[in-house]
Amino acid sequence: MLNISKLHASVEDKEILKGLDLVVKPGEVHAIMGPNGSGKSTLGHVLSGREGYEVTGGTVDYFGQNLLELETEERAREGLFLAFQYPVEIPGVSNMEFLKASLDAQRAHEGKEPIDAVSFMKQARELCKKVNLDQQFLKRGVNEGFSGGEKKRNEIMQMMLLQPKVCILDETDSGLDIDALQVVAEGVNSLRSPERSFIVVTHYQRLLNYIEPDFVHVLSGGKIVKSGDKSLALELEAKGYGWLGADVA
């Protein structure tokens, strides 16, 4: 469903991704680990089509389409979801308005009418419960003044609302307390299905105890330098990145 091949990308003329390969098949969970600054978030930004992240080489195939040709919003409506490492605050626009606009955009793409307000509210309230956010968070500005952990749970809430096909979670576990980590993991696990895939970027083996990956990759210096099964995460936790060789930062 997602086939990334020899991907090169630059930010402000600085090459960050240097020939990255990754193939994700339906139902799989891929964990990506790697040193700070190695390009993990950049990969997420490139896949989401962020302005300023220029693809200079390689291809990304998404369900038979050239992903790189689609606008950011089209990628989203086609089921690509990115949970941000640093979710953006949008004061003055309520979380509720934002969530409904997102859902309606996707529905329109599927040829459906906007969801009626009552059903939407019901759904939103249920999701709040699932990610353990008070309903007051629906009325507040998008991520406005949310704590780090609350922002991450809000990302998971959006993911659960939109039911995407490929979910990229960029350090969604960072800054979470133990309970919140479980909430996030349960959210992800509840969405796991043979059709849906996840790319989980994390620094900690801890999350992978809850969300069991099929593959673990090490991204370093802009490409995948090692792949393995979940035991690789344990090994990295014990040994760090140094043993992987000279080209690892």
Partner: peptide, 16 residues
């Protein structure tokens, strides 16, 4: 740009 991008990654059109 980052706010616009955030909304668009949720499927919201650039105009909206």
């Amino acid at each position: 740009e980052k706010s616009l991008h955030y909304l668009r990654t949720r499927g919201i059109s650039e105009e909206e």
